[in-house]
Amino acid sequence: WVPTKREEKYGVAFYNYDARGADELSLQIGDTVHILETYEGWYRGYTLRKKSKKGIFPASYIHLKE
């Protein structure tokens, strides 16, 4: 896992994603996520609506905010 280059990196989910394991994070369309790390097509972070739950999710489900 590699920390993100920018201190504040955010994105928005444009697909729903159902977590398949305890380390994964479920997403709903429109969720804003804070991205902490990246690795081979995956991000690690949390949604702003539930900051206490961190997990991994596919990068392809996220539109990055500039």
Rank of each mutant, 00 (worst) to 15 (best):
Trp1Gln: 08
Val2Glu: 09
Val2Tyr: 11
Val2Trp: 08
Pro3Asn: 05
Thr4His: 09
Thr4Gly: 10
Thr4Trp: 09
Lys5Leu: 10
Lys5Thr: 13
Lys5Asn: 14
Arg6His: 12
Arg6Leu: 11
Arg6Glu: 11
Glu7Ile: 10
Glu7Lys: 11
Glu7His: 14
Glu8Tyr: 11
Glu8Ser: 11
Glu8Asn: 12
Glu8Lys: 09
Lys9Met: 14
Lys9Asn: 06
Lys9Gly: 05
Lys9Leu: 13
Lys9Thr: 10
Tyr10Phe: 11
Tyr10Glu: 06
Tyr10Asp: 04
Tyr10Met: 06
Tyr10His: 10
Tyr10Ala: 04
Gly11Asp: 02
Gly11Val: 04
Val12Met: 06
Val12Pro: 00
Val12Glu: 05
Val12Gln: 04
Val12Lys: 06
Ala13Gln: 01
Ala13Glu: 03
Ala13Arg: 03
Phe14Ser: 08
Phe14Arg: 14
Phe14Glu: 08
Tyr15Glu: 15
Tyr15Asp: 14
Tyr15Cys: 15
Tyr15Ala: 15
Tyr15Lys: 15
Tyr15His: 14
Asn16Tyr: 06
Asn16Gly: 08
Tyr17Arg: 00
Asp18Cys: 13
Asp18Lys: 13
Ala19Phe: 01
Ala19Glu: 03
Ala19Gln: 01
Ala19Ser: 06
Ala19Met: 02
Ala19Tyr: 01
Ala19His: 01
Arg20Leu: 08
Arg20Gly: 06
Arg20Asp: 05
Gly21Ile: 05
Gly21Asn: 15
Gly21Trp: 06
Gly21Phe: 08
Ala22Thr: 10
Ala22Arg: 08
Ala22His: 09
Ala22Met: 09
Ala22Trp: 09
Glu24Arg: 02
Leu25Phe: 01
Leu25Gln: 00
Leu25Arg: 01
Leu25Ser: 01
Ser26Lys: 03
Ser26Gly: 04
Ser26Asn: 07
Ser26Glu: 04
Ser26Met: 03
Leu27Cys: 06
Leu27Tyr: 01
Leu27Gln: 01
Leu27Pro: 00
Gln28Ser: 11
Gln28His: 11
Ile29Glu: 07
Ile29Tyr: 06
Ile29Phe: 06
Gly30Tyr: 04
Gly30Ser: 02
Asp31Lys: 01
Asp31Phe: 07
Thr32Ala: 11
Thr32Asp: 06
Thr32Tyr: 15
Val33Gly: 00
Val33Cys: 03
His34Lys: 13
His34Tyr: 15
His34Trp: 14
His34Phe: 14
His34Gly: 07
Ile35His: 01
Ile35Ser: 01
Leu36Pro: 00
Glu37Gln: 07
Glu37Leu: 07
Thr38Ala: 12
Thr38Leu: 07
Thr38His: 10
Tyr39Gln: 09
Tyr39Lys: 15
Tyr39Thr: 11
Glu40Gln: 14
Glu40Ile: 07
Glu40Pro: 10
Gly41Glu: 06
Gly41Gln: 06
Trp42Thr: 00
Trp42Val: 00
Trp42Met: 01
Trp42Cys: 04
Tyr43Glu: 00
Arg44Gly: 04
Arg44Tyr: 15
Arg44Leu: 13
Arg44Phe: 15
Arg44Trp: 15
Gly45Asn: 03
Gly45Gln: 03
Gly45His: 04
Gly45Phe: 07
Gly45Leu: 05
Gly45Val: 04
Tyr46Thr: 05
Tyr46Leu: 03
Tyr46Arg: 04
Tyr46Gly: 02
Tyr46Glu: 04
Thr47His: 12
Thr47Tyr: 05
Thr47Cys: 14
Thr47Trp: 04
Thr47Pro: 05
Thr47Glu: 08
Leu48Asp: 11
Leu48Tyr: 08
Arg49Met: 10
Arg49Asn: 15
Lys50Gln: 14
Lys50Arg: 11
Lys50His: 14
Lys50Asn: 15
Lys51Val: 11
Lys51Ala: 11
Lys51Arg: 12
Lys51Asp: 09
Lys51Leu: 08
Ser52Tyr: 12
Ser52His: 12
Ser52Arg: 08
Lys53Gln: 12
Lys53Phe: 08
Lys53Glu: 10
Lys54Val: 15
Lys54Glu: 10
Gly55Lys: 03
Gly55Trp: 02
Gly55Ile: 02
Ile56Asp: 01
Ile56Tyr: 10
Ile56Thr: 06
Ile56Arg: 08
Ile56Lys: 09
Phe57Val: 01
Phe57Tyr: 01
Pro58Arg: 04
Pro58Val: 06
Pro58Trp: 05
Ala59Cys: 10
Ala59Ser: 13
Ala59Val: 08
Ser60Tyr: 07
Ser60Thr: 09
Ser60Gly: 08
Tyr61Lys: 07
Tyr61Cys: 15
Tyr61Asp: 02
Tyr61Asn: 07
Tyr61Arg: 05
Ile62Ala: 00
His63Pro: 01
His63Arg: 14
Leu64Asn: 01
Leu64Ala: 02
Leu64Asp: 03
Lys65Gly: 09
Lys65Arg: 12
Lys65Cys: 15
Lys65His: 13
Glu66Gly: 13
Glu66Trp: 13
